[in-house]
Design a protein around this nucleic acid. Structure first.
Length: 883
DNA sequence: CGCGTCACG
DNA sequence: ACGTACGTGACGCGA
């Protein structure tokens, strides 16, 4: 039995374009419409198993419809360039799938499909028409089903005549009459003004067709009668325009639509070109990664060395340019060394951990520790940590391809080496997943497989190095890389290896205290609810609050009722259960994340926690912290803040010293905007929120009360985030109008800031990216999107990134300088943590005075701005007391 | 594994 | 008419 699928290519591409989040490939080409199209195709192929398939496209602007009605589709907005550039890609992709495509000058896709469905009807072939356009419903018949996209692209709603009857009370052909009466603004089909779907359906249920309605106008009444009489011609013409042509002179027949399945290799090539990694995985290609990469590697001499043959490598230490050291696991403090490869200009050597760590590996280890032996690598930060756990202190890092790739595009977090290699045109490299498997299937392969792969990776680093160097140069980020990020990676590795002592005993004491209070809060909740349930389950909690107790629904999420803290706050007046829930949530968060979570991370031998600061994650240039995250230890609420008591110095008699920048983001804003009022405020060391309150509320310093200052503080936050009246109104629980007036007042007072916000958005639109003070870039392709939400988001990002990113630049500078100072002065004090605007040290008694002076001085002078930078310092026996 | 929630700056 | 504050990471739930 044959089965045809006919797809309206233009309609589906449009749907995919607007339904999918934007996606660009390395070349900056948008690919999300192609992506959406592809997922839909894959799903259709799997579910429908068609024997014939065709995608029809509109051809050109002039069709027989524009000939009869020149305004046809006249109001339709021009296809955005982000979409039109994707049509060639879609057509190429269809080629790779082996799916027929067709377009015919003078006709639209739906006419081609209309003609084919007529043929299908005549031949009695089961057919599915896929489109986003309701007009297609007119083609439905006993053999033809119409699938319309719903929400996304892959979710289809099927309409055969019974479903159309049920939904509209109409026969398929009456869909044409429906549109004739109501028109379609997207195609600029007029219809009868004032007649919408409701009226049109009523008329059709009574009279049956446009013609019959027009013949019976005397029976109509009032305004409706007037309108129909006046627009008889429009209605007739509209019906004509809405009629899909079913007699197009097609030059192709069913034979050309035959679909025999796709060639996996051809499709994989297409996906690779489009950078559809997840789809590539879905294909599950047999022997993937073998073919071309091996051909590529054939020219490469891979020498697998062991303890007996290591001289082959150690004789050539001076020639090594690039290294690649592989470890299994994401957490470098726990990762197991898998192997290593060393690349010279003409050969690559690979070896196993036993060889590297054994007696024979000594010269190699000495070379790794030699600061005078420059080496290029990929993720040297992680490499340094993995090696440090093996007692090897990596030195002489001259280049890091991962770090370079991050600076070149910081929105691509932790790109894989295979991805970077492909993107910068340094030849093919198999993806790790294809060699190692992933998730539960992860397996370290035999050396025969592993060593050539590692060799190719080291070789890829070697070939990437000059390419990435050139790219950095071209983008003006050489100094950012050489003088800041690369040195910082070493500083970070040092901090992480050092670790911070966390007292398990203190955490356990806190934990048992919290435990009792959790039980109490839980019982209160159960008591008020009149039943026991899982409070952690938003689903169950929602049912209790909004169904059982009948509280008003404030906000919904995709999956049901929202029960977040904001909602609960608003529900507080309605029921006594609310404070108990909030308290329960607060306590369980403390217990699971901070007491139990941190306890799991303490190494029993040393009582230390070693976090992993990630340098290539945040799009703004900030660091992030994992395993565990030590950048979000509680402080705002006293109960949580006590967790900090467990963070203590690693030696007796030492202190914890913490220093944090005061208002660094607003000072950065004052500098880059050049706003006079803001600069003056900081030059005079005024309280910035009070100053803002004075200007926004137009009062004197003495008249600013706590509430005004609080509101002004929120305005300042808003300014840094890329303000919107809605966001501010939510935050302050005031009306949008009031928020808007605050913002207007702010911009009146700080006109330099307004100008900065306008200029930075304009600049982002012009250049496609924004930069920080040190030249860090972030690309914002969506700044030109036609979708309002995407564009607004990009605009706020354009305002925020230079501020947050410059603050990140500054504290990174301070860290590198601080590390230098500690060495130069031969101090024993150690830098342990960075929390975005704060640095944490452990300090021996005799250096306390020096450090209390040195740290804020280095932080404040890390860079010179038009306003002073200030850092406040504080010390104590633990992190809690250093406040 | 995605989602909702919440901890931090 | 629409839906928004910026940047992260970890936990528990439930499909």
């Amino acid at each position: 039995m044959d089965k045809w699928i006919l797809i309206d290519g233009n309609s589906i591409a449009n749907r995919a374009f607007y339904a999918m989040p934007p996606l660009t490939n390395a070349a900056g080409l948008h690919t999300h419409a192609v992506y959406g199209f592809t997922t839909m195709l894959l799903k259709l192929l799997e579910e429908e198993k068609p024997t014939h398939m065709l995608v029809a496209f509109d051809a050109g602007k002039v069709t027989f419809r524009t000939e009869s009605y020149k305004d046809y589709k006249g109001t339709r907005a021009k296809t955005p360039p982000e979409l039109s550039e994707q049509f060639p890609l879609i057509k190429e992709l269809l080629g790779a799938f082996g799916i027929a495509q067709y377009e015919l000058s003078g006709y639209e896709a739906d006419d081609i499909i209309g003609t084919l469905t007529r043929q299908a009807d005549e031949a009695g072939v089961e057919t599915l028409v896929v489109s986003g356009d309701k007009d297609m419903l007119q083609l439905a018949s006993s053999h033809v089903t119409i699938a319309l996209t719903r929400k996304g692209v892959s979710e289809l709603e099927r309409y055969a005549p019974p479903e159309i009857e049920e939904r509209y009370g109409l026969k398929p052909l009456q869909i044409i009459d429906l549109k004739g009466l109501m028109g379609d603004s997207s195609d600029n089909i007029p219809g009868i003004p004032g007649v919408g779907e409701k009226t049109a359906l009523k008329l059709l249920h009574e009279y049956g067709s446009v013609e019959q309605v027009l013949a019976a106008t005397e029976q109509l009444k009032g305004k409706l009668k007037e309108r129909v009489e006046q627009h008889k011609e429009d209605a007739a013409m509209s019906k004509e325009l809405a009629t899909i042509l079913r007699e197009v002179p097609l030059e192709r027949g069913a034979e050309e639509m035959k679909y025999d399945g796709y060639e996996p290799a051809a499709l994989a090539d297409a996906f690779r070109k489009l950078e559809f990694k997840s789809l590539l995985e879905r294909l599950e290609l047999p022997g993937e990664g073998a073919g071309e990469e091996e051909a590529e590697a054939a020219d490469l001499e891979t020498v697998s060395v062991d303890a007996d043959s290591i001289a082959l490598l150690t004789d050539k230490l001076g020639d090594i340019e690039a290294i690649y050291i592989e470890a299994a696991g994401d957490n470098p403090h726990h990762a197991e060394l898998m192997g290593a490869a060393f690349a010279t200009a003409d050969a690559v050597y690979a070896l196993s951990p036993q060889t590297l760590l054994g007696e024979a590996g000594a010269p190699l280890r000495a070379w790794l520790e030699d600061a005078a032996a420059p080496k290029s690598g990929y993720d040297m930060h992680k490499t340094a940590l993995v090696l440090s756990w093996q007692g090897i202190a990596l030195r002489g890092c001259a280049f890091d391809a991962q770090l370079a790739a991050y600076l070149l595009d910081p929105t691509d977090a932790s790109p894989t080496l295979a991805g970077v290699t492909r993107r910068y045109g340094a030849g093919g490299l198999a993806a790790d997943e294809d060699v190692y498997g992933k998730g539960a299937k992860f397996k370290v392969p035999e050396d025969e497989t592993l060593h050539p792969h590692l060799a190719r990776k080291a070789d890829a680093v070697l070939r990437l190095t000059p390419l990435l160097h050139a790219q950095l140069e071209e983008s003006g980020m050489r100094s950012l890389f050489d003088d800041l990020e690369l040195p910082l990676s070493t500083v970070l590795a040092g901090m992480e290896s050092q670790g911070i002592v966390v007292r398990a005993e203190t955490l356990r004491e806190l934990g048992s205290e919290i435990e009792g209070r959790i039980t109490a809060a839980m019982n209160e909740v159960y008591h008020h609810a009149g039943a026991e349930f899982n409070i952690h389950s938003p689903k169950q909690l929602g049912e209790v609050l909004f169904e059982k107790l009948g509280l008003p629904v404030i906000k919904k999420t995709k999956t049901g009722y929202s029960t977040d803290a904001d909602v609960l706050d608003r529900l507080e007046p309605y029921h006594e259960i609310i404070p108990s829930i909030l308290h329960y949530r607060q306590l369980t968060k403390l217990q699971s994340t901070y007491v139990e979570g941190l306890l799991k991370e303490i190494r029993p031998e040393t009582s230390k926690i070693h976090t992993y600061f990630r340098q290539t994650i945040a799009a703004t240039g900030r660091l992030s912290s994992q395993y565990p995250n030590l950048q979000n230890i509680p402080i705002r609420l006293e109960e949580g803040r006590k967790i900090r008591k467990a963070f203590v110095p690693s030696e007796d008699g030492w202190s914890i010293l913490a220093a944090d920048y005061s208002q660094i983001e607003l000072r950065v804003l004052a500098h880059i905007s050049g706003d006079e009022g803001l600069k003056e405020a900081f030059l005079g060391e005024m309280d910035i929120h009070t100053k803002t309150a004075m200007d926004v509320f137009g009062v004197g310093e003495g008249e600013v009360d706590a509430n005004m200052r609080r509101q002004a503080k929120a305005v300042n936050f808003g300014i840094v985030y890329g303000i919107s009246d809605f966001g501010l109104s939510q935050n302050l629980k005031i009306t949008r109008k009031e928020a808007a007036s605050f913002i207007e007042q702010y911009f009146q007072a700080f006109q330099g800031v307004r100008k900065y916000m306008d200029d930075i958005v304009a600049q982002a639109r012009q250049d496609g990216y924004v930069t920080t003070l040190l030249g860090r870039r972030r690309y914002l392709p969506e700044i030109k999107a036609s979708n309002y939400n995407l564009r607004s988001f990009a605009e706020r990002t354009a305002m925020n990134t230079p501020i947050q990113g410059t603050a990140a630049d500054i504290i990174k500078l301070a860290m590198v300088q601080m590390d230098g100072q500690l060495r130069e002065r031969g101090l024993q004090s150690r830098m342990l943590l960075q929390v975005h605007d704060e640095l944490v040290f452990e300090v021996p008694q005799e250096e306390l005075e020096t450090m209390r002076e040195l740290v804020p001085q280095v932080m404040a002078s890390a860079i010179e701005l038009d306003v002073p930078l200030r850092a406040d310092v504080s010390g104590g026996a633990n992190w809690y007391e250093a406040k």
